[in-house]
Computed example of a mutant assay.
Amino acid sequence: MRFIIQRDRLVQSVQDVMKAVTSRTTIPILTGIKIVATSEGVTLTGSDSDISIESFIPKEEDGDEIAEIKQTGSIVLQAKFFSEIVKKLPTDSVEIHVENQLQTIIRSGKSEFKLNGLDAEEYPLLPQITEENVIKIPTDLLKAMIRQTVFSVSTSETRPILTGVNWGVENGELTCIATDSHRLALRKASIETETAEHYNVVIPGKSLNELSKILDDTNKLVEIVITENQVLFKAKHLLFFSRLLEGNYPDTSRLIPTESKTDVVVNTKEFLHAIDRASLLAREGRNNVVKFTTNEDEVIEISSNTPEIGHVVEELQSQSIEGEELKISFSAKFMIDALKTLEGSEIKISFTGAMRPFVIRPINDNSILQLILPVRTY
């Protein structure tokens, strides 16, 4: 195998596939990146058997030559060393040449590295997915949906299914739900689909985080193919495979209250900053809890008390308060996380009592909601 390639494109592709490579694998060859040169271009693959990423660099694009393939072939190179080498090479082009016994020469300018490679035939094959039922979604919408839900997945392995985001597809609508049993995030969107199939799958939160980092902020469509145990995301020159989590996701629809006893409308930014300030003294303690009290004249009091440190109280003018008076306590961190995902200048918080879950929504937008369970302090 022998080819010359633009260094920037190689670095970008290496960084993308590195997101799937881990040093903690039981299959030694998976600590490497697989490189395949064909007459069309160069394909790089990284995998940790949960996530697999394939990045393709075409021979030419928009009339520019990116890679010159002198001899086709394949090799697996140690990801850790290969990624560091290509990042630090001195000139804009790189020559990669595999000699006999899999020894690989990496040349750029007057710099030359020799790396011992592994036989690409031994690299596990990527899942074979038949692309029958394709869902299409704009990249920027997909990234927003991930951002607005993935932070609510559980970080504890006691219930592995909760470490993923539940994706449901029905009647041209995608619904993403994440919960760690103390809070819940839900986001819906219309999507293009060529199938009437219903899907209900759970994608690991870690996979979605990595996918989101790789995707560009464009409105180009990403194609999504869901099978029994895998999901494939296809963007330009990029394939991202993730295994799905096994098991049934809990029915969260029962958690979301349909009625409320107290509705409060506040300015999103003002409320976020007030909660942030109130949590300054609560962060030290284990609890990080703030108290929220409705007062007369549509004023909210936000306070926090950490006996060994001090007390903070702040009044905030709401746009409106309807319903019963309320005193409730909740995690400041959960509230800040939720508020950061909501777009729009005003939000409505619907409470059904001091010890019941409450719901936060942007005004006039039913496609997204955040739910938080209160903390017992009174």
Results as ranks from 00 to 15, higher is better:
Ile69Gly: 07
Ile69Cys: 02
Ile69Tyr: 00
Gln71Val: 00
Thr72Val: 10
Thr72Glu: 15
Gly73Arg: 08
Gly73Thr: 02
Ile75Pro: 00
Val76Trp: 00
Gln78Asp: 14
Phe82Tyr: 03
Phe82Gly: 04
Ser83Glu: 08
Glu84Leu: 08
Glu84Val: 01
Ile85Pro: 01
Val86Phe: 00
Lys87Trp: 06
Lys88Phe: 13
Leu89Lys: 09
Pro90Gly: 11
Thr91Ser: 15
Thr91Pro: 10
Asp92Leu: 13
Ser93Leu: 07
Ser93Ala: 00
Ser93Trp: 08
Val94Tyr: 07
Val94Ser: 05
Glu95Met: 12
Glu95Tyr: 02
Glu95Leu: 10
Ile96Ser: 03
Ile96Val: 11
Ile96Gly: 02
Val98Asn: 00
Glu99Lys: 15
Glu99Arg: 11
Gln101His: 11
Gln103Ser: 03
Ser108Val: 06
Gly109Asn: 01
Gly109Val: 10
Lys110Tyr: 09
Glu112His: 13
Phe113Trp: 01
Phe113Ala: 07
Leu115Thr: 01
Asn116Cys: 09
Asn116Trp: 14
Asn116Gln: 12
Asn116Ala: 12
Asn116Phe: 07
Gly117Ile: 03
Leu118Tyr: 13
Leu118Gln: 12
Leu118Glu: 10
Asp119Arg: 12
Glu121Leu: 01
Glu121His: 10
Glu121Gly: 04
Tyr123Lys: 10
Tyr123Pro: 02
Leu125Asn: 10
Ile129His: 03
Ile129Asp: 01
Thr130Lys: 13
Glu131Val: 05
Glu131Tyr: 12
Glu132Lys: 15
Val134Thr: 12
Ile135Met: 04
Ile135Lys: 11
Lys136Phe: 14
Ile137Asn: 05
Ile137Phe: 11
Pro138Asp: 14
Thr139Met: 13
Thr139Asn: 04
Thr139Trp: 05
Asp140Ile: 13
Asp140His: 08
Asp140Asn: 15
Leu141Lys: 15
Leu141Phe: 09
Ala144Val: 04
Met145Asp: 09
Ile146Val: 11
Ile146Ser: 07
Gln148Trp: 08
Ser154His: 04
Thr155Leu: 09
Ser156Phe: 13
Glu157Cys: 04
Thr158Pro: 00
Arg159Cys: 00
Pro160Leu: 06
Ile161Arg: 09
Ile161Pro: 01
Leu162Cys: 05
Gly164Gln: 04
Asn166Ala: 09
Trp167Leu: 12
Gly168Thr: 12
Gly168Leu: 02
Val169Leu: 15
Asn171Cys: 05
Gly172Ser: 01
Gly172His: 08
Gly172Thr: 02
